[in-house]
Every structure is written in structure tokens, then in C-alpha cells.
Simulated scan of single mutants.
Amino acid sequence: MNFSTFIGLIVGIVIVLWAMSMGSSILIFFNIPGLMIVFGGTVAATMIRYSLKEAIYSIKMSFRILMPSTDIQDKEELIELTDQLVRSARQNGIVSLEKIEVRNEFYQYGVRMLVDNYPRELVRQTLKEENRLLVERAQTSAGVFSSIGGAAPAFGMIGTLVGLVQMLSNLSDPSSIGPAMAVAMLTTLYGAMIANLFALPLADKIAVWGQEESIRQQMIIDAVDFIAKGLHHSMLRDVLSPYLDKKPNFDEEVV
């Protein structure tokens, strides 16, 4: 898991819960009608905008980003691995690559196609298409959580209006004012918390991850192509070093 994400999430939740519990019972912040309005409305609005398949994939992608990965992520390590693969391919042939452990799933896919004697251009084209699909999926997943972040506060306001209407329509009954006011206030709180502590930060996280992973995959595409061409390992760093300083560009299109 990304530690900054983990620490931020835990600190945010702890601070909010601590503030809630100071001076009163935290149970007063639990309101079933308010939760139904915010959670139910947010889920409904998101499902109208996106398909069930896209929503489920977004959840899977969020876990993929937050949980520890066994894939090679460091670009310097990718260059070292590529150097090892290049030397092995030149000395022992492409087939020898299957004996070398490749811990990056995308890189492993490309190497496997080389070992299976796929044409170089087909390998490059296939990997580029995989990279394009990754960016599209990341953008869609970020959009799903952005939608949640926009819908939750809106339904919080709807819940507030519902509570105010209930309160104003029953001013003659003092016992109904308290529950109605609780719905009015707590739905706004729920919507703000869902949006700002969970959905919007996760949308940004997925967007940044998608761009960084796209750059990493583009680097791997060039590395696999370098191996397929049979070039000398002394040229490797000159070919791949530009990726070491390349930063995500959110306006950049995959080519």
C-alpha cells in the first residue's frame, strides 16, 4: 500500500471520529434515514452515469493501487533487468529469456511474446494497445470516484432539505423537531465526508497512478523493442534514460 495514502486516510478518519466523540456520544452522529439518502442516492446517481461493469472495475483498480504490488515499479530496476535480458538474448538467443525472472506483469507479457517468436512490430503494437486500454480504464475509474465525490454532497443537501421540510411541517409537535433536524444536519456531514475524505482523493490517486503507470509501460515497450532488435547493451541507457525524468502529463495522449 502507498504509505502516504494509508496515513492520510487513517489520520483523517481518526481526527473526525475524535472530534465527534468530544463532549458527546459518537452514536448521535449515526442516523439511518440520513445514511439511506446519501449512500442510496450517491450509488443510484453513479450507476446512472456508469455501467455496473465500470463501477466494479473501478473498485478493483482502487484495490490494485492501494494494496502492495509484487511488480517491479522502480525505473532504474527496469533498466537493470532490461540489460540482463539484452545480454542473455544476444549471447544465448531469445529463448533464453524465459529462464530469467521478470516480476513486472506487463514486461513479462512482452517477453513471453518475444520468446514465442511473435513479429517485433506485432509485439510493439499489442503492447501499445494494452497501454492505451490501461489509460482509458484509469480515466474511467477516476471518473467513477469523481462522480461519487460530486453526488455525495449533492445528496447531502437533498437530505438537508428533506429534514427541514419535515421539521417545518411538524412545528406543532416538538418531539419531531429533533429527529428531523438530525437528518437535515447529518446528511450534509455524510456527503462532505464521503466526497472529501474518500471519493475525490481516490479519484486523484487513480488519475496520477494511471499516468505514471502509462509512462512505465511506454518505457517497457521501448525496452522490449530494444531486445527484439538485438541492439548492443551499451546503447540501452541512452534509449531508456529519458523515462527516468519523465513526469506525468495529464494532457498527453498515448501514441
Rank of each mutant, 00 (worst) to 15 (best):
L186F: 11
V165T: 11
I194D: 01
I26G: 12
T70F: 07
V115K: 01
P179T: 03
I13Y: 15
I100V: 10
S69F: 00
T160I: 09
I100L: 10
P153D: 09
V102G: 08
A151W: 13
S172G: 12
T70W: 03
I72T: 15
V224I: 15
F198C: 06
Q139D: 14
N104T: 00
W18C: 14
T160E: 04
A89C: 06
S58M: 08
I37F: 02
K75T: 05
E98Y: 03
L27C: 08
S146H: 05
L189R: 03
M113T: 07
I158H: 09
A199I: 08
D116V: 07
R237Q: 13
L81Q: 03
H233V: 04
L202V: 04
M113E: 07
V224H: 09
A195W: 08
N131M: 05
E105H: 01
A228T: 03
D238P: 00
R216I: 02
A45D: 12
M61G: 00
S88F: 05
G12S: 11
S24I: 11
Q217C: 04
M167H: 11
Y118D: 03
V123I: 13
L97I: 02
N249M: 09
G150C: 06
K247V: 07
L134S: 01
Q125Y: 02
S214K: 12
I206S: 12
G12T: 13
I32W: 13
S88Q: 11
G93A: 05
V239N: 10
S96D: 06
D245L: 07
A89R: 05
A55V: 15
S21K: 13
Q217V: 00
V43T: 10
A192H: 04
T188E: 01
V255K: 08
P242F: 04
V208R: 05
Y57I: 10
L189W: 01
L78K: 14
E121V: 03
K128T: 08
A89Q: 09
I10Y: 11
I221T: 04
G178Y: 10
Q108R: 14
G34Y: 07
K128Y: 06
V208L: 12
I220N: 02
L97H: 01
T70I: 07
S58N: 12
V115N: 09
H233T: 13
F3Y: 14
I177Y: 07
L202I: 07
Y57H: 10
L168N: 12
E253G: 00
E77M: 11
I7E: 14
S214I: 00
M193N: 04
T70V: 11
S146E: 08
F30I: 15
T42Y: 06
L127Y: 05
A154H: 07
F106D: 02
G110N: 05
V14A: 15
I148A: 14
G150S: 10
P33W: 00
E130L: 15
S234D: 11
K99C: 00
I158W: 06
P242C: 07
L97T: 00
R64N: 13
R132S: 14
R87H: 05
A184Y: 06
D251Q: 11
R87P: 00
I10W: 09
M219C: 02
